[in-house]
């Protein structure tokens, strides 16, 4: 019994990390259509920001979450202004440009902070385990689950219930028409990109106490994030939520009953098969084209 609960919690925990990492990517891609290959590096920069705030200013992880979001949103905003805004509607160029930004970010961090693995302390009150229905689980993992759901809810509310979100959806459906009604599309894009980068930074900071922090850590996360977004459907927030849930539970159970190597292969295979028959992903937003 407790193993079943443990395994369920494990799946949810994997899912919550997947969703944290994928949410920013989904927001950026869903709205602006930019495939941001530097997303993994935004995650990495967030983790390094947590490390820097901790070692330079002695700030705990929880206290540094808000500054990290602001710093990374500023980074995203700058990247949008300097590079992305000049490349809209040029898909291949944005892929190349964001990839280049990612490589530069990796090397910049390596030069500034060195190549060794870095340590970010887990918040003291969360570094123990708790018991749920007879199964023990890490308090910190539950905390990540909670934060991931909260961030999803915030994003959902912004998207569905604010004036900004209304403009967002209008642009997503038809940019030309939306612009002709006086919506400043480039401003909306800029804010979206900043928000997505801020989310990525939060993801990096939050996973850093469970995993390791290194200049190359982003590469793995960007692959995971793309899996989630591709499976969920590129313009659907609900799709992101559902597909991270499915992928998390699936890889958790497969890894439990076989091993992580096989689980990874099978999950990728499942996605390939699904995309073959349903290229738009599980969920689709109705968009007039």
């Amino acid at each position: 019994m407790d193993i079943i609960v443990s395994q369920l919690m494990t799946g949810l925990s994997i899912a919550s990390i997947l969703m944290l990492v994928a949410l920013g990517l989904a927001v950026i891609y869903g709205v602006t259509g930019v495939i941001n290959l530097a997303h993994g590096e935004f995650v990495m920069l967030g983790a390094y920001a947590a490390w820097a705030l901790q070692t330079e200013f002695g700030m705990g992880l929880l206290a540094s979450l808000v500054p990290i979001f602001i710093i990374m949103a500023a980074v995203g905003w700058l990247v949008e202004v300097l590079v992305i805004s000049r490349l809209y509607d040029r898909l291949l160029d944005t892929i190349l440009a964001t990839w280049g930004i990612g490589v530069m970010a990796q090397q910049a961090v390596r030069l500034a902070a060195g190549g060794e693995l870095r340590y970010v302390q887990m918040p003291e009150p969360l570094s123990k385990s708790v018991t749920i229905l007879g199964a023990t689980d890490s308090a910190y993992r539950l905390f990540i689950l909670f934060v991931a759901l909260a961030l999803f809810a915030v994003t959902w509310v912004i998207y569905r219930h604010t004036n900004f979100g209304l403009k967002l959806r209008a642009i997503t459906q038809n940019r030309a028409v939306a612009s002709s009604y006086g919506i400043n599309a480039s401003r909306i894009y800029r804010l979206t990109f900043a928000y997505g980068a801020g989310l990525a930074g939060l993801a990096g900071a939050l996973v850093s106490p469970l995993k390791s922090v290194s200049p190359e850590m982003g590469t793995n996360y960007v692959v995971d994030a793309f899996m989630v977004v591709v499976l969920g459907g590129t313009q659907s927030l609900m799709g992101t939520l559902a597909s991270s849930g499915i992928l998390g539970e699936l890889s958790g159970y497969l890894a439990f009953y076989s091993n992580d190597t096989i689980a990874k292969a099978l999950v990728l295979l499942a996605i390939v098969v699904l995309i073959r028959f349903r290229p738009q992903g599980l969920f689709t937003a109705r968009v007039r084209t």
Partner: peptide
């Protein structure tokens, strides 16, 4: 055996 670079050990 886990894949090289694997970082999710909850299972």
């Amino acid at each position: 055996y886990v894949p090289l670079g694997h970082s999710e050990f909850s299972s």
